[in-house]
């Protein structure tokens, strides 16, 4: 799947903000990811050439960041905070629950391609620990029951 004209235009717009096009690397990858969910080798190569970067150096950047997905992910990505405040407030139980419920391991994607389960570092909402982010939505004071209910909203 090659980049769409719209994606190309968007990347071009992003690069205009930077003294060198490479400055837009992370944002361009995220932009591709918004439509394709993950960054394929092909897309990475296409983005690299728009940024005047080699695919290797762009991939070096992509693989550095945990929120750039270089493997397919499900329709929704569940990020479970595993940092200290959430840990104190019981995030391990949440993780165990989700793995059982979704029948996946960390990093896995459900058989129906609906969810990918990932741990994430502190979401900056420690006062609402434990926290979970599903796609772009932050959920606080999460319990297994509340989470099950919330996940119903993501088809």
């Amino acid at each position: 799947m090659a980049l769409t004209d719209q994606q190309i235009a968007e990347i071009t717009r992003l690069t205009s903000h930077y003294r060198q096009k490479s400055g837009a690397a992370v944002e361009a990858l995220k932009m591709v990811q918004r439509t394709s969910r993950w960054v394929s080798d092909e897309d990475l190569g296409a983005v690299a050439s728009l940024l005047d970067m080699s695919p290797d150096s762009l991939d070096g950047v992509a693989t550095f960041h945990n929120l750039i997905y270089r493997q397919p992910v499900g329709r929704h990505v569940i990020l479970v905070c595993d940092s200290v405040s959430c840990w104190i407030m019981g995030c391990r139980l949440l993780g165990d629950h989700l793995r059982r419920q979704l029948e996946v391991q960390w990093g896995g994607t459900t058989a129906d391609d609906r969810f990918t389960l990932l741990p994430v570092v502190c979401l900056g909402a420690c006062d609402h620990a434990p926290t979970v982010m599903v796609d772009e939505d932050l959920h606080g004071e999460v319990t297994p029951a509340k989470l099950d209910q919330a996940l119903e909203g993501y088809r």
Binding site: S83, V84, S85, V121, C122, G124, A125, C126, D127
Partner: peptide
Amino acid sequence: DEMEPGTFKDR
């Protein structure tokens, strides 16, 4: 960037 665990002031 506010990513230090336990920190949620900048947000």
